[in-house]
């Protein structure tokens, strides 16, 4: 069986190419140069592959590439196009929320998507919101600090 035509936008750029029926969105994205989407398990169990698909944060390893046909995908490289994305990146840097950084692209995507819907969460809510994204290095403290700082900023500017 041949590959299937797929049209989607990734980080605002149109992509027209083909994908295999069974190909995961993760493999598809990495194959097309979006290596910022990381692969930690390929089973939906770590969150390193998180992307935004039609405004929802999803694990791209358990989503078919073809399920993104005619849809919008955002990876961490597209985050600089959003004020919230830039704020989060800066906050992660300043709060030391990054060690090896392998969880970071997924973590930032999850945080962005969550704060879009829920701009002023408390720390416990943030912990739940990122509970699908494992981090082995930080113990999560500084990641929560970084996201919480953006939430506090959101509250101030409200």
């Amino acid at each position: 069986m041949e590959e299937y035509k797929i049209d989607l936008t990734v980080n605002g750029e149109k992509i027209s190419t083909t994908a295999k029926a069974e190909e995961s969105l993760l493999k598809f994205l990495r194959r097309n140069g979006f290596t910022e989407v990381k692969c930690g398990c390929e089973k939906g169990e770590c969150g390193t592959c998180t992307v935004i698909l039609n405004e929802k944060a999803v694990k791209s390893c358990i989503t078919l590439a073809l399920q993104a046909n005619h849809k919008e995908v955002w990876t961490v490289k597209g985050m600089e196009k959003f004020e919230l994305g830039r704020k989060l990146q800066k906050s992660f840097v300043n709060y030391g929320a990054i060690q090896c950084g392998f969880c970071t692209p997924g973590m930032i995507i999850t945080a962005k998507n969550y704060l879009d819907q829920n701009p002023i969460p408390n720390r416990e809510e943030i912990k739940k919101a990122i509970s699908g994204n494992l981090c082995r290095c930080t113990g999560y403290k500084k990641i929560v600090d970084a996201i919480y700082a953006v939430a506090v900023e959101n509250q101030r500017s409200k």
């Binding site: 989407v37 992660f92 030391g96 990054i98 692209p105």
Partner: peptide, 21 residues
């Protein structure tokens, strides 16, 4: 001083190329 690490930006922007990238 609690300064941002040299590698931090490359990691938050997804620019850093790990072994498989």
């Amino acid at each position: 001083k609690p300064i941002p690490r040299d590698d931090a930006w490359a990691k938050v922007t997804g620019e850093l190329k790990y072994a498989d990238d």
